[in-house]
Write a protein that binds this DNA or RNA. Sequence first.
DNA 1: CCCTGATATTTCGCATGCGAAAGATTCGCG
DNA 2: CGCGAATCTTTCGCATGCGAAATATCAGGG
Lengths: 166, 166
Amino acid sequence: MSPPPLTPDLKSEVDQVLEAVIYLYTESRRITKELARRAELTGPQLTVLKLLEQLGDLSLSGLSERIRAQNSTVTGIIDRMEREGLVVRERSQEDRRVVFIRLTPKGRELAKDIPVEPMEIFRSALESLSAEEMRTLLRIMTKLAKRVRQIVRRDVGAPDTRDEEK
Amino acid sequence: MSPPPLTPDLKSEVDQVLEAVIYLYTESRRITKELARRAELTGPQLTVLKLLEQLGDLSLSGLSERIRAQNSTVTGIIDRMEREGLVVRERSQEDRRVVFIRLTPKGRELAKDIPVEPMEIFRSALESLSAEEMRTLLRIMTKLAKRVRQIVRRDVGAPDTRDEEK
DNA sequence: CCCTGATATTTCGCATGCGAAAGATTCGCG
DNA sequence: CGCGAATCTTTCGCATGCGAAATATCAGGG
């Protein structure tokens, strides 16, 4: 648990990286929100709309997995989108527990009119990096993510930290 | 505006980096939340508690700047913390528009009992990188953040994208 | 068939989180 | 001084976002 000896400079670099990650994440959300606002939508609603356009019908669980939210959260989002006539719920025939979410013509029309995918701006910023930088960034970020996962299991020990790779 | 020609491999690397950023951010929030839960707090409340412990009294605006939230959001958080007796509001003498948030003895006690700072785990993961990697990561992330800022100003054209560096 | 456990969704209560508008106070300038 | 702009905080309405409990359905064993 004893931290490795770090020079003050390095310590502050840690904070700067942290700042950058937080900035990039919040900014990408803000951008999605701004684009959504122009179509009278909210950020998550735009995300769902483009997801359904690209992938076709999805179950509510499938949707919540995709956007990394709980089922109960997505239920509310779909409620409001259904109220606006953008999607419809349709119970599965094979398994009547499952509800598929489907775009209405109105929803599909709206999705078509929004040219940019959510995150597109973030992506284009990433693409301004050189191939070399991109590769390096990916390598380090992957290493970081792996390291965080390790520490989480050992220290925080959340009851069952969604063990997807078991 | 035309994106540089990307190989499919590079394109998928973009998505992987995006995934990693999102993972790191959401995971760090989840960790904070888990730590907070043990002290009967919420994530943002823990963040505020530790912030006040480290920096002393802060105005509500100062606080909201620190945690990158709107004033109206922080007002609610402070309301609930005040209800729990963790902080008190105190009007500034010099400028009676300003409200300072101050830890109560109970709040200070609680803060002391929570050894880890929010984000600590994330930090220790960052510190597992070599100095070389850290420097590279910081350089690329900074470049990325700058690039995003540029694109935002030009494309999305948010009314006044909080120009802090003007 | 009936019971039990598992799975998918919804409901509920609560805590962010935001933006617009309102309220209080201060500041600048004539 | 006095008035309007600027600043700080709160209020309000709404949309996430979560976890626990309720509901509905399916799958399997007896």
